[in-house]
Design a binder for these strands. Structure first.
Length: 485
RNA sequence: GGCGGGAUAGCCAAGUGGUAAGGCCGAGGUCUGCAAAACCUCUACCGCGGGUUCGAUUCCCGCUCCCGCCUCCA
């Protein structure tokens, strides 16, 4: 049984499906108006580990993650790009999906977009109007009346009277009865262009918070198991979702609220102006993989800030954290290969049950030395604890001493926790680089000298290879050539 | 000002009322002609000051500093 911190009750609570069969949860997804950054992906990756842990533990899930495809920024930037809103958001949605695949994120069961759910959102507003929780202003916008919802502020623990901000109020907000009220429907403005829809209150578009309330209800019902997002969404986004949904349905919205702390870069907030705003494309351009980034993103507990170190001590952008992740993952790969070597080939092929679906529900006693690692995930999704236990097991388990059956058990245990973390075992580098004829010749001559125990010549030839940019590593039966990094 | 989260080795980062996992880097060693790889070993007075306790890094109070939210940012 998994335990997870709940923002609303401020306590650790069990992860249990209210219907006893399927765990149904909603994650606030990206706004598709540009590339997602690694901070966004910290959230999505940890949500993915959460889902994997539940499913591998034997409990099916229903995972809904929305795409915010209409708001001020998407409208503004689509116009700047000379594209329709749909063309523009589809482009960035594809990019997002590509990044997700490279980070080994499971695809949500539903991925609804706001634009495709306008009727549901209008229906929700109508209900709120009928129940007296919303009002139309003179310009045709509709606002949620915060004072009509008694428990407003319960999630963020903000007292309603503290929600007044004394500073400048945006021009268009004079229509509201109270500054805390928020838009359910935004009246059409000239700069919206073609991006408007008809409604009982006039042309316009839905407010941001509304889409999640409407789509949660559409796909998960009035009450579901868990709702998740970054900590910044606690207020006002999730607070407003609760106000909308619960006022409309009379039911409490979600049993559990799962919020993820933000990523820091080099000890500070990520921002475009500081030049530390990284996308997966940039990480890959620097020679690292999504798998390596994923390792870094799960290396801290989700409720702690994670400091992504992009620059080394000299201030150079060498991504030491990713380089460390590469080394750590290679150790896992070598261990995995050592286990595989203990398993006879025909068995290895036929019973190589280390895929995600094959491992679902693997009993705890069949996880070998890696049982403790998975247990770490059950304890408030403690990914660093799980990683620590993986490496501890790597020391304890000696592949060379295992028979085939034990090796298969350990290998299943290892892959069980790796699948939960969503980490792939990297391919160990094979000799696949093109070696020029001249280099191959030098290497052959050195190998001959070495075999003849002519150390002086061998060292000279090694130096020549090095000068040409090649590294020669001696093995028991032969040598390996690799370009110098 | 309000609410919340932090401060653990060079870096990253778990954890516990009885003197602290793991990863990266570094050092030493075994092995190998050398190198590489592999394996072994080593590196922390747990922000500061009080208090509770037989005993606190872990609980309580105060302080300093950092971070997030408090006007659509994961």
């Amino acid at each position: 049984m998994m335990k997870l911190y709940d923002t609303l009750s401020r306590s650790l609570r069990e992860v249990t499906p209210r219907d006893g069969r399927t765990y149904r949860f909603y994650c606030c997804g990206p706004t598709v108006y540009g590339p997602a950054h690694i901070g966004n992906f910290r959230t999505f990756v940890l949500q993915d580990v959460f889902r994997r842990t539940i499913e591998l533990g034997g409990l099916p899930t229903r995972h809904v993650r929305n795409l915010t495809d209409v708001d001020d920024k998407t409208i503004r930037d689509s116009q700047a790009a000379g594209q329709t809103l749909t063309e523009f958001t589809h482009y960035w949605t594809d990019r997002f999906h590509r990044d997700c695949a490279r980070l080994n994120l499971l695809t949500p069961h539903e991925e609804p977009g706001a634009v495709d759910h306008i009727p549901q959102q209008i229906a929700l507003i109508e209900t709120l109007m009928e129940k007296g929780h919303a009002y139309r202003s003179d310009d045709g916008s509709v606002y949620y009346k915060v004072s009509s919802f008694d428990s407003y502020g319960r999630l963020s623990h903000l007292d309603r009277r503290e929600l007044r901000y004394g500073t400048a109020v945006a021009d268009d907000e004079y229509e509201k009865d109270s500054v805390a009220d928020f838009a359910l429907w935004k009246a059409r403005k000239p700069e919206d262009g073609d991006n408007w829809w008809d409604s009982p209150w006039g042309p316009g578009r839905p407010g941001w918070h509304l889409e999640c309330s409407a789509m949660c209800r559409e796909y998960l019902g009035d009450t579901f198991d868990l709702h998740s997002g970054g900590v910044d969404l606690i207020f006002p986004h999730h607070e407003n979702e609760i106000a909308q949904s619960e006022a409309a349905t009379g039911c409490h919205m979600a049993d559990h609220w799962f919020h993820l702390t933000h990523l820091l870069v080099d000890g500070g907030k990520m921002s475009k102006s500081l030049g530390n705003f990284y996308t997966l494309d940039q990480i890959e351009a620097a020679g690292f993989t999504g798998n390596e980034l994923r390792y870094v993103l799960i290396s801290a507990h989700y409720r702690q800030p994670l400091n992504f170190v992009a620059r080394d001590a000299d201030g150079k952008e060498t991504f030491p954290a990713l380089a460390g992740a590469r080394h750590a993952l290679e150790r896992i790969a070598k261990f995995d290969a050592a286990l595989r070597a203990r398993i006879p080939m025909e068995q290895g092929l036929s019973s190589d049950a280390t895929g995600y679906d094959q491992l679902r529900g693997l009993p705890a006693e069949e996880r070998g030395g890696f049982a403790a690692a998975f247990d770490g995930l059950l304890n408030d999704l403690n990914t660093p604890e799980a990683l620590g236990q993986v490496f501890s097991a790597l020391k304890e388990v000696k592949p060379a001493e295992l028979d085939a059956e034990a090796a298969r058990r350990e290998r299943r245990g290892l892959h069980f926790v790796l699948e939960a973390l969503g980490l792939r075992v990297p391919e160990l580098k094979e000799e696949s680089v093109e070696v020029p004829e001249a280099i191959r010749d030098l290497a052959e001559r050195r190998w001959a000298a070495r075999t003849a125990k002519d150390w002086a010549s061998a060292d000279v030839l090694r130096a020549e290879l090095a000068a040409a940019g090649w590294e020669m590593k001696d093995g028991r039966e032969g040598y390996e050539l690799s370009p110098k990094g």
